[in-house]
Design a protein around this nucleic acid. Structure first.
Lengths: 115, 115
DNA sequence: TGAACTGGTATACTCTGTGATACTGGTAAC
DNA sequence: GTTACCAGTATCACAGAGTATACCAGTTCA
């Protein structure tokens, strides 16, 4: 078994890529992050901002993302309770990824419209 | 029902984001694109370059990606046949996304190593 | 008084992406 | 002559991602 020194960077990079996919994988995490980073704080507000998401999926993802320190859930004990979600610094590190993906999506629609 | 003019950009952006996720969603498409763009051409070569992928998944994804014009499959009718995969121009438009994700992954490992 | 909002939970279901294992026919090297 | 490479295909099976629908307690609006 040979160790290919030339390929060590490629190996590190593909590992990095797979790490990232692992963390933000699935249909909803990036849209939710994007929504919260765009200033949406309330549960129904986030829900309405993401076409196709169900209450259940949003609820589940928010819980998981809170556990993973991607967001903070703030509760004001008024009646009824006021719940607000906020992004963390860590969450905002995904901005370059999200921006790249939004740009790809916009260019792609443009292309389809043209062609 | 009110139409919120302020949110039209946000709506377009989240749609673009969801489009992109739709196209490159799943665990394997981006790693495969990355591998091929890095110069891997042969089936087993690509397979070896992506930790964890199975022959079956690679085979399926390559087929789908060929149908979607993301890659080209070139067959040289030697015996046994020589098969080579190449990226298309369209495929390469994902570079910014892949780069952003690799950078996130590298920074993330760095952070974990430190903390 | 009833409708609509809030922030979710409960239950039941689908389904497909993914994994594990084995196999094929041909070639080449030890 | 057996092992290993190539480029895959075939079969089976499963977890869990995602969907659909209904529901709750409390509040505000008309």
């Amino acid at each position: 078994m040979k160790i290919d020194l030339q390929n060590r960077d490629a190996a590190r990079e593909i590992q990095a890529l797979q790490d990232t996919i692992y963390v933000i994988g699935g249909k909803w995490k990036l849209p939710i992050i994007n929504s919260i980073c765009n200033g949406n704080k309330r549960f129904r507000e986030i829900e309405r901002s993401i076409p196709g998401i169900t209450t259940r999926m949003l609820s589940r993802e928010l819980k998981e993302m809170e556990m993973n320190k991607l967001i903070i859930r703030k509760v004001t004990p008024t009646s009824p309770v006021l719940v607000e979600y906020e992004s963390t610094e860590y969450c905002r590190t995904f901005s370059p990824v999200i921006i790249a993906m939004i740009e790809w999506g916009l260019a792609h629609r443009e292309k389809i419209r043209e062609g």
